[in-house]
Computed example of a mutant assay.
Amino acid sequence: MTNERRVLVHPDQESLAGAVAARFITKTLDILDAQEIAHLSLTGGSMASAVLDAVWASPARTSLDWSRVHFWWSDERWLPDGDPERNDRQARDALLDRLEIPAEQVHAMPSADSGLDLDSAAASYAEDLARFGTDGLAHPVFDIAFLGVGPDGHIASLFPHRSGIRVTDRTVIPVRNSPKPPPERLSLTRPVINGSQRIWLVLAGADKASALGLALAGASRDEVPVAGIKGRRRTVFFIDQAAASEVPEELIAREY
């Protein structure tokens, strides 16, 4: 399949969340028709929670065999287990705890009260990824990787002008002195994210327009980390109208 990079614009945040949820269910059904297990990577933020809420609200969710899906995270805040600011807690509240998914298929990153330090936590998650490695890789190939994009263009916990976006010899890194609180985090590295079959970036709001426009115009990944993100098959930016003001017209898809 041709590697594509496209932008889909929706009128507002509510329609955006509903459209992504519908596509998520449909695409995961297709994936599970073709293979036994699906590996999906989740992200944090308000739009990510809105999408998962919309998945739960859709009657079509019952058509999926959720017991054949593994969930991972692209990054996590270094906070105690159950903290409402943790990405995994938000995803559990919005969807995962409402579904019948075997606990061992929900691969949360270690928490600050796990008994591990930050470096050991990164190594632990790397070991978990390696257990499901495919194609000679030390990690699973995600069938769909969801990402948000910050106003500064960061993805996962890979921030502008920081070394994280350039790391290629590890799958998981500890992040310290993050420009966005909390200061300590865990993050997948760019090669793991870019190894995904499909990357779906979901972003809304006028404050995201500049970073998105720069990324699509070919900015440096060091300056705008999202510019360095591209999935194996497709990279789709699902955005609302407010975020679309600086998107090149030729990249806006009229249909998916």
Rank of each mutant, 00 (worst) to 15 (best):
171 T>Q: 13
187 S>A: 05
195 G>W: 01
159 F>W: 08
182 P>E: 04
191 P>D: 05
176 R>Q: 11
179 P>S: 03
178 S>D: 08
154 H>R: 00
160 P>F: 08
173 I>N: 08
201 L>P: 00
205 G>K: 13
156 A>E: 12
212 L>N: 06
158 L>M: 08
202 V>Q: 07
159 F>R: 03
159 F>C: 09
187 S>F: 01
185 R>C: 01
208 K>E: 00
208 K>Y: 11
186 L>R: 02
204 A>L: 03
209 A>W: 02
217 A>F: 10
212 L>G: 07
180 K>Q: 15
196 S>E: 02
196 S>N: 04
209 A>Q: 01
177 N>F: 14
159 F>H: 10
166 R>A: 15
182 P>Y: 04
205 G>W: 15
154 H>V: 03
189 T>H: 03
204 A>T: 12
191 P>I: 02
176 R>P: 14
212 L>S: 05
165 I>Y: 04
201 L>Q: 11
199 I>S: 11
169 D>F: 03
195 G>P: 03
192 V>E: 00
154 H>C: 08
217 A>K: 00
181 P>C: 14
161 H>C: 11
175 V>T: 06
154 H>D: 08
161 H>I: 11
208 K>L: 06
179 P>K: 08
191 P>Q: 10
185 R>A: 06
213 G>Q: 02
213 G>T: 07
199 I>H: 03
163 S>N: 07
159 F>G: 03
214 L>F: 14
162 R>V: 02
173 I>E: 00
214 L>G: 05
185 R>V: 00
199 I>N: 02
186 L>Q: 06
205 G>T: 14
156 A>G: 04
174 P>H: 13
155 I>M: 10
190 R>Y: 05
172 V>N: 05
198 R>F: 05
165 I>P: 12
184 E>D: 11
174 P>M: 09
183 P>G: 07
185 R>W: 04
172 V>C: 05
164 G>T: 02
195 G>T: 00
169 D>I: 06
213 G>F: 04
167 V>Y: 11
